[in-house]
Structure formats: structure tokens, C-alpha cells
Amino acid sequence: MQISDVLIPVGIFAALGVLFGVLLAVASKVFAVKVDERIPAVLENLPGANCGGCGYSGCSALAEAIVKGEASPNACNGCSAAGLRKIGEIMGMEVADPVPLHAQVKCSGNCHTAVFKYRYEGARDCIAAERMGGGDKVCANGCIGLGTCVAACKYDAIRVVDGLAVVDTAKCIGCGACANLCPKHLIAMIPAKSKYDVLCRSVENGATTRRQCAVGCISCRICEKNCPAGAVTVNNFVASIDQNKCTGCGICAEKCPRKIIKRID
């Protein structure tokens, strides 16, 4: 073996690499495309977390969609009111002040209260666990608690406590990224001013729920009967609160025999 056996291939590949590099550099100048200057302007006013809560792949994709007119200027839930107004100015539109939202995990069944059907030892990911017969809890609607939502949150606003995801409402900006990923669709985006919420989404009848979880909604309708504002309804064996009607009196939370209507602010 001679030294040229090594040098020639190295030389050729270096030359090839330089050639392609120069070619691409020249091409990027020659083929440069003018970008609409409103796109970077809109992008500057978006939060830049690339959370994907808007349904686009990131903030720059949303900025492009807004400028093209495909997305509405207030499509970003995570944007501050001032930011939204600025985007409105750039696009020449009036933007109504946003209703701030935050995420709420509609489950109370942690590792002490829920009943488990098997011990899960697979990948630490709810979507993977969901495929194993719908997760390790007997309740088909319960939080799997492996933290897929935690990984999705760019704001460190959600964490798993005792096998149950809990939202830190002070940090949550309501982008909805966690809600999009949750395989149980357990995370609801509710108005940030909400005072009480039902932390259960079990659609089984009362007797079945009672067997599955110590803190599941048994659809006893006590909350519905006692709500003075008519905001609580029980449908499909689970109570829900209409946050637009709720006055925040807290009677439902007091009367709930299972203590699953909780103060959340």
C-alpha cells in the first residue's frame, strides 16, 4: 500500500466537497427569493416557543400562514395581548383581546386512588402505554401519568405528581400543546378565570366508576341539583361545568360526595 492510495481519495473527496459547497453557496445567492417582510415582523411578536399549539409546525410556519391569510392573526394562544395587537397592526386588522386559557387535566385518579390492572414497564410515554390495552389504569379515561404532556410543555407548566399530571396555572399560557398530544384527550383548555372544574372524565356508569377509582364521577347529580346558576350538567355519566355560566360560588365543590369538583385557580 502506498501513501497515494490514501491521498488520492481524500483529495478527490475534499475537492468534491469544496465544489458542492461553493456551488450551493453560489446557488443560494443566485436563487435567493425575496421573502415577504411582514413574515419576520409577525414572527417577532409570536412567543417563539414553537409549541405547535396552533396546529402549525412552529412559530415561523404560523407567521407565514398569518401573512398569507390562511391563519387568523390571533391564532396563537400563547401570545401576549400586546403581541396580538402588534400582529394586527402589521396585518392591518383589528384583533379582539384574547380570552386567556389554561390547560386543565380532567382526572383526579393518582396512584393511590385509581385501580390498576397491570404493571406497565414499557417506554415512559403515554402514547406508547395507551397502545398496551389503553394504559395501566382500569379506568379507560384516566390519566396515564407518564408525562407525554410534560415533555410537550415548553413553559414547564405541567408535571406529574403521584402518577397524575397537574397543571401549574401560574405558568400555563394556554398554548394547547399538551392537549393536542394527550392520548386520552384528558386535557381541556378552559378560560383562565375559571374557579371550579370537575376533575374526572369517566363515562362509565356510577357503579363501574366506583369499582375503577376512588375519586371518579359517579353521576349522582347532586352538583347539578344544587348549582344556583344552572352551570353544572351531568351528561354521559360525567358532570361538567359551563364556565360561562359559573359564578364561582363553590356549592358544587362542597356538595360533591367524591370531592372531585375542585377549586383550580
Partner: peptide
């Protein structure tokens, strides 16, 4: 194999820029 990967990667980049312009 190495040469072809290099060529294909550069080519795809080039085609992308070319298409975007023209």
C-alpha cells in the same frame, strides 16, 4: 456509497433552491 450520498444531498439542496426560484 459515500460519494453518492454526498452527491444526492448536495443535489437535493440545489434542486430545492432552484425550484424555489424558478
Amino acid at each position: 456509497t459515500v460519494a453518492f450520498i454526498l452527491v444526492i444531498a448536495a443535489l437535493v439542496q440545489f434542486i430545492e433552491m432552484f425550484l424555489r426560484k424558478f
